[in-house]
Amino acid sequence: MISANNLSIGYRNKSGDTCIASAINLEIDEGELVGLIGVNGVGKSTLLRSLSGVQPYLKGEVSILNKNLHKLSSEDLAKTISVVLTEQPISKNLSVSELIALGRQPYTNWIGSLSKEDRYKIQTAIELVNIEALKDKRCFELSDGQLQKVLIARALAQDTPFIILDEPTTHLDMYHQAYVLKLLKKLTTETNKSILFATHEINLALQLCDKIIIMENDKVIAGTPKELIEKNSFSNIFPSDLIYFDNESVSFKIRT
């Protein structure tokens, strides 16, 4: 579905390239829910932006559905990958249904009129995320958790085989964190979409994800939660002075 080969990510400056991570190899298959974890500033967002084609990568190759990512036109890219970003939509005056409808932009005509199919996809997205009751509200009336669901519905309306979410659980309480991640899990099984998301909720991710990508300063490891636990891969994510990974309870604990 999507794969990265010997990928280097970072920024191009006049004075030379700033490499943030290199030699990244990963593969995400159809219908997989994949969590991306790592310490703050390690380059999770840069990796997500590079995989979603928003930011050019430095070296290596990303292919999606057997096509080179950078050879896709912006229209085709918009029909292949949808995103949910940490930034909130700039106009909170949008109504929920207007916002979700904007997900159909890559498919609509030159002035953006919604066809019957567009309306159907919007309705399906609303039903999948279960936000029928919010349809006519405006975004400024929503709680953070509700807004996150709406943004996920927008990505679903974009009807892409691949969805990337950057920290979809930030600002949410524990219940809504679980709610959003379970929703993502449900979407992968019900719609067979591949979903990649960055998160700090390692405990939740371990319970729900098919695959986990761990970003460290010098390397990127990927595998099923079980494999990674067996390899003891979680103990190196954070500095070890305050917290440690407890293999028995499969979670992080505070050092006492």
Binding site: V83, E87, P89, I90, Q105, P106, W110, I111
Partner: peptide, 24 residues
């Protein structure tokens, strides 16, 4: 301006979302 209408609507989500929706 009329030809920009669709993209103007997309811009309401912010430039990053607009880019991800195929707006140049």
């Amino acid at each position: 301006a009329v030809f920009c209408v669709k993209n103007l609507n997309t811009l309401l989500l912010g430039e990053n979302y607009a880019r991800s929706l195929g707006v140049k």
